[in-house]
């Protein structure tokens, strides 16, 4: 999902006899499940694709703090306040782990922020939607973190070592994110009439944007095939989306809430040979492309908030470097004396 709009180089996966010896060795290592580490030779396309994907994943984490952080100040109990704050704090941490992983590929954190702030880099579409009620906080945890987990768990097996290790840490921390969201939904769905209405309303607004998180079908995509060959992408968009729907439907049923898709129905033989799955409506891909290109409900606010934070924080970052430099100079002259 963080590879939305990430294009790999070239016309597609090379056949073995089209590869150089280096490329063949590299592909063999990936095929056998070895990890690629920073100091190793890698195709330029692999490096470039990884930088884009990891940094866009990182951008998604830190932009993802914003839709939920604005509800910390209105959290309705002290416990929920602490839980939400801990969750949003985790997202900052996830961004940090991923930026650090990307740095091993030859790009600095400052450069990555520059790409985000200038609009050159993308982040997950979902975070351009507004959080309008407390039920949205529950829904974001339940559906958005749910979708993210679906994508992240397989990425623990991705070929690039630093990325895989970051994903292991992220997955460990992420497990509470979805649970706290679902916990909020349970309380509300079983609460007052007003709470139940809020919960249903949130589900109505977030269902299709959550499905969009997995990206459009990549059946036709040349780039998707290369990413899969390099084990930068583990599952297809459609496979993940199907898994997400099948997992979420019983959860909505448990809550007594209705998924806003009248065509949603269990199809016992959807994949043949008795392998079933839900039939469901596709999201509006025009909406998706509009949102990813900057025209969603909150793009300007989200990016603006990140730019403001970065610019307002420059004196702080520079001030601390200035102090560190002064201290280093003082030690040096003390040693020299």
């Amino acid at each position: 999902m963080y590879a939305q709009m990430v294009k790999t180089d070239g016309a597609g996966v090379k056949a073995s006899d089209e590869m150089t010896a280096e490329e063949r060795d590299f592909q063999a290592r990936i095929d056998e499940g070895s990890r690629i580490e920073p100091k190793e030779w890698m195709p330029a396309g692999y490096r470039k694709t990884l930088i884009r994907q990891i940094s866009q994943h990182a951008h998604s984490e830190i932009v993802g703090q914003l839709p939920e952080s604005n509800w910390i100040t209105r959290a309705p109990t002290l416990e929920r306040k602490a839980i939400l704050l801990a969750k949003v704090q985790d997202e900052a941490g996830h961004g940090l782990y991923l930026y650090c992983a990307a740095e091993t590929l030859g790009i600095s954190r400052d450069e990555m922020f520059e790409q985000l702030h200038s609009g050159k880099a993308k982040y997950s579409s979902i975070f351009n939607y507004p959080t309008l009620t407390w039920a949205d906080i529950g829904t974001v945890g339940w559906l958005v973190d749910g979708a993210a987990i679906m994508n992240q768990v397989p990425l623990q097996r991705t070929s690039y070592g630093p990325y895989a290790r970051a994903m292991v840490r992220i997955c460990k921390e992420e497990s509470f994110h979805q649970r706290q969201g679902f916990d909020i939904m349970m309380k509300m769905a079983q609460g007052t009439e007003a709470q139940r209405r809020m919960a249903q309303d949130a589900l109505n607004r977030f269902w299709f944007p959550a499905l969009m998180m997995f990206g459009p079908s990549d059946a036709e995509s040349v780039h998707s095939a290369q990413s899969m060959a390099w084990k930068i992408k583990i599952d297809t968009n459609d496979a993940l989306r199907q898994k997400f729907v099948d997992q979420t439907v019983p959860q909505a049923t448990y809550l007594g809430l209705t998924i806003p898709d009248e065509t949603l129905v269990w199809n016992a033989d959807k994949f043949g040979e008795g392998q079933g799955g839900h039939d469901f409506a596709e999201p509006d891909w025009d909406e998706f492309f509009a949102v990813v290109s900057g025209n969603g409900p909150c793009n300007a606010e989200r990016l603006g908030a990140r730019v403001d934070a970065w610019e307002a924080g420059a004196w702080y970052r520079d001030g601390l470097m200035a102090h560190a430099d002064k201290q280093a100079a003082r030690s040096a002259s003390k040693d020299a004396a």
Binding site: Q65, T73, A92, G313, A314, Y316
Partner: peptide, 18 residues
Amino acid sequence: SEWCGHGPALEEDIALAN
């Protein structure tokens, strides 16, 4: 907690939240 997501550096954002 109003700073969460708006801190001057990621490390500081996390420390403030603690």
